[in-house]
Write a protein that binds this DNA or RNA. Structure first.
Lengths: 358, 358
DNA sequence: TGGCTATCTGAAAGCGCTTTCAAAAAACGC
DNA sequence: GCGTTTTTTGAAAGCGCTTTCAGATAGCCA
């Protein structure tokens, strides 16, 4: 790592840098300056800049020009204070680096942006206390709406949101009580299990990410167990593995599973990364896929179709979830009617990593 | 997709939902309410809530309790207006779904968060006009600092930032003029080229992402071309491929390259995804890696060590870049001295996808 | 041109917090 | 116990914008 001062000397003081302010950051020109320059009042400046009708063309232009000349940038805080709308929406996701959440955030933001809102995203790290802290942080910032993931939260969270009066929407899983956009995690995982059973598999294993405080992960395993039970089978404890996310986690998980006794003929993994890791480990052990082991993933990541063999996976329509959540929240903020529950079904994508057992 | 109304009827009106407000969203209790309840003035409330010294313990507690009881959440806009600090920092990245940028944003946010700042991230989509628009949007929101990626921007962007007087930092590439945290893209790519030449390769190809308005991608190709030239070799036009990002892009890119004439014995790819795609295509054509083709990627993505063979790649220390950029900006915001340029070297990670040519 | 209506415009009052400044209270010294 | 010093406290003045409301202008018709 190289750290270099400006002219080969010691670190430059911040004072030497352009655009550097110390105390009360004196931001640029304000509406009053524009008004003076255009020979009107601040009221008119406001009207022009907000596009409200009823300003004579000549004044309008004078204001526009003055604002342009001065490089005027309105002070968002003042505007927010005055209008009592921040034009910002918050989102707290378990892991901001997780592909599925990134895709949701991205499409969510797309919609917000179109409606003139800013997205402020925060990371909860699969910890309820952290989630509460981050959400509170956003509420203090004054967001006009809030997106959360899942149904399990800190007991105080909903009260705190309610006390600010802003709308929230839950994503990724469905809820009986709250507005939500998501899918039935148990049902979609069960669908995968049923598919595997239809192929003839009897010993099916699960490798999921951490399930603590994670209703999605938990629901998936429950869904699978129920689907098995419905056909008189069961999920053996040694075939029910919980690991941390990632390719490495998948390898470890499958290794653990093999250590537990007779291997399953098929596994369902919590993410495609986990599935990838499990496939690597399986191959290292000389197991053929799908001959000796069928593998199902979750998410339909970019690389899933390119694995060898291409991975059968449950595709979560992240972009649609993000769009729907964004539309929902904006409608609520704008006081329009909305539906409480939007289900966006996950879909089982069949590829070559699954086949009947030998 | 299922859209379900609350009780099997038509969509519920927003009015039926809890936490729903129409006109001037009347947010919860304000400082005045807390003051009244605690029997003090708003000045004291402010002092307590901001932890400033000089408030008697009993009053402090009364205020705390009142705030707690009321579920008071301070209005960030009012605070920002008053302190003239928004406690938010903006970042505009080319693609918010790109792994490298996500990692930088994540570590950047980590630092901001520790200092009490909020990250507001926006997406420029590799388009200069969009970048200007998003940056302006953030400036209007009142961010206290701004992080940008790369050295190529809309001609008006720097003027606009300067007119607000907030500090900015550029990441991923170095700059002669502006504060920056990054690395020398040309040099690190050249290092990969030299390594390949040291192995004995003479025909080296490049598959990069789109290079328009992307100084990093461009610099890398230039660095490679210069390294080749320094040893009397050259980058053949048919071995210089530009494609859109992604695994599919990598496959297409390598296919194009093969169509252009005699294949190179080694390629350097703009991302690991591209490298992955190229490897798939190479294998489909019966080329052995690294026997017939050595492959180098960029970024050291999660999956790079798990490819078959494990991918040699240029690791970009995204987390460090994000941390350094965050620290830099916070220091500037707080008026502390900073260094203008921080170089965080990319590193060539040797794995099994590279070997001497046959 | 005068009278009346329809448009425009600006003064002023907030929005909810921070912060200064002076007054009030507490602590101290003798 | 009284004057003085040190803490605490509250009143009030912003921060920069939006928005109401009433007054000023312009437009229209006879």
């Amino acid at each position: 790592m190289r750290i270099e001062a400006a002219q080969g000397g010691e670190p430059i003081s911040v004072l030497d840098l352009p655009g550097m302010i110390l105390e009360p950051p004196s931001r640029g020109p304000v509406a009053r300056d524009v008004a003076r320059r255009a020979g009107v009042s601040t009221a008119t400046v406001s009207r022009v800049l907000n596009g409200s009708a009823g300003v004579r063309a000549d004044k309008r232009e004078a204001v526009m020009r003055a604002a342009q000349d001065l490089g005027f940038v309105a002070n968002g805080a003042a505007r927010a204070l005055s209008t009592r709308r921040f034009m910002a929406v918050g989102a707290v996701v378990p892991n901001i680096e997780n592909e599925a959440f990134v895709r949701v955030l991205s499409s969510f933001q797309e919609r917000l942006r179109q409606a003139g809102y800013t997205l402020v995203a925060a990371n909860a790290g699969y910890d309820l206390d952290d989630e509460l802290r981050e959400a509170t942080f956003l509420l203090e910032r004054g967001v006009d709406g809030l997106m959360l993931v899942g149904d399990i939260h800190h007991p105080d969270l909903h009260a705190r949101i309610a006390s600010t009066g802003i709308p929230m929407v839950q994503t990724f899983s469905l809820s009986q009580q709250r507005p939500c956009v998501g899918f039935d995690n148990a049902a979609s995982a069960a669908r995968a299990a049923n598919y595997l059973m239809d192929l003839g598999h009897r010993r099916i294993g699960v490798i999921s990410g951490l399930r603590k405080d994670n209703d999605r992960g938990g629901a998936r395993v429950i869904g699978i167990a129920q689907a098995l039970a419905a056909r008189g089978l069961s999920l053996a404890p040694e075939h029910d593995i919980e690991i941390s996310y990632g390719i490495g986690g998948g390898r470890d998980g499958f290794r653990q599973m093999l250590a537990g006794g007779p291997p399953p003929t098929a596994i369902i993994c919590g993410t495609d990364q986990i599935a990838f890791g499990a496939m690597i480990e399986a191959r290292a052990r000389g197991l053929a896929i799908p001959g000796d082991l069928s593998v199902v993933g979750h998410n339909d990541s970019d690389f899933a179709p390119f694995l060898d063999p291409p991975l059968t996976t449950i595709r979560i329509h992240s972009a649609e979830i993000g769009h729907a959540a964004g539309d929902h929240l904006i409608a609520r903020i704008q006081g329009k009617p909305v539906v409480r529950l939007t289900e966006i079904d996950a879909e089982l994508i069949l590829r070559a990593s699954t086949a009947p057992p030998r």
